[in-house]
């Protein structure tokens, strides 16, 4: 009896084997890859492969295009993240308002963009942003705004992608905020109301502090998602105009799968991962400063 294998292993083995083989091994191999000059010649024959130490990382850090991609991505994360979280919170407060009728209907409407296919939606917005026939400029013309070349103007291209991305994603975090709002005990509001707090002070001193853990979770997830920006610039701008929407993942894709500079691309992936980890740690550390129940 004692020698029989624990049947539990039978249950976890398929999943663990798949995760080890298709996640752990590739991630570890990717680290090794980033220290090699793996390129098109190595794809042809492995003996052309050489270890180059930190050369890929040195090249990367000296490469203006990488810094530009990083700046663009950080802009997307640092400006788009807070705006996206704010939009989600606003939508959650609206659908969760006590007076609101037809809540499920509005909730579904706000959520619908989340389930849609990003590539298809990016194609749609590409046309919405069209300088001449696009719906957005047509609507703005009604307010007397001169046509804007959204995706062709270096100043507007990233904000345009950002706006589309907020539209696409805010519904997801809204659902999490609604759950967070509903978990706040009603008696806290009653007590605040007895103390003479109006709607704004109730929001400031009850809702916001009680939502802090939810907001932290949402902020971290949004940041992680933001760093992975890829399909929007791929479909809408190909990274242009003049690389103003080139994201880090798009750069990795181009280097790795267009030019087969796989060692170099792996280094890009690891720098991104390091920034992502640092960003997550920073946000978790900032938590005590961000309020909390007072």
């Amino acid at each position: 009896m004692r020698r029989r294998a624990n049947p539990a292993w039978l249950f976890v083995a398929p999943a663990l084997a798949a995760i080890a083989l298709f996640l752990f091994v590739p991630v570890f191999a990717s680290l090794l890859l980033s220290f090699t000059d793996f390129d098109i010649y190595a794809v042809a024959a492995l003996r052309n492969l050489r270890f180059v130490g930190f050369a890929n990382y040195q090249t990367l850090l000296a490469e203006p295009l990488f810094w530009q991609a990083l700046r663009n991505t950080l802009y997307f994360v640092a400006v788009g993240g807070p705006l996206s979280v704010a939009a989600s919170l606003a939508a959650a407060l609206l659908v969760n308002a006590r007076l609101a009728r037809c809540r499920p209907l509005f909730r579904t409407a706000f959520f619908l963009p989340v389930v849609t296919t990003l590539v298809a939606i990016a194609v749609v917005w590409r046309y919405l942003y069209h300088p001449r026939i696009g719906l957005i400029n047509q609507l703005l013309a009604g307010f007397g705004v001169a046509p804007i070349d959204w995706l062709g103007d270096p100043h507007w291209a990233m904000p345009a992608i950002l706006l589309m991305s907020i539209w696409k994603n805010f519904g997801f975090n809204m659902i999490i905020f609604v759950a967070g709002l509903q978990a706040i005990p009603e008696r806290l509001y009653e007590a605040a109301s007895l103390d003479g707090a109006g709607p704004w002070r109730q929001f400031r001193y009850v809702t916001l502090p009680m939502l802090a853990p939810t907001a932290l979770f949402v902020a971290v997830m949004t940041m992680i998602g933001g760093f992975q920006l890829f399909a929007e610039p791929y479909v809408m701008t190909q990274g242009g105009p003049s690389n103003h929407t080139l994201s880090v993942v798009l750069l990795m894709f181009q280097e790795g799968f267009r030019y087969w500079n796989m060692g170099y691309a792996a280094a890009i992936a690891f720098v991104l991962f390091a920034i992502l980890l640092a960003g997550t740690a920073l946000q978790l550390k900032l938590r005590p400063l961000g309020g909390g129940p007072t």
Partner: peptide, 28 residues
């Protein structure tokens, strides 16, 4: 189900949720 190292293994797995999918993409 009970098996040796279960909870440690699970915590280890959950920690890998921060790994973005693109990281292992080239070797995969």
């Amino acid at each position: 189900l009970r098996f040796a190292g279960r909870d440690r293994l699970f915590r280890g797995l959950v920690a890998t949720l921060v790994i973005p999918g693109q990281l292992g993409m080239l070797p995969l």
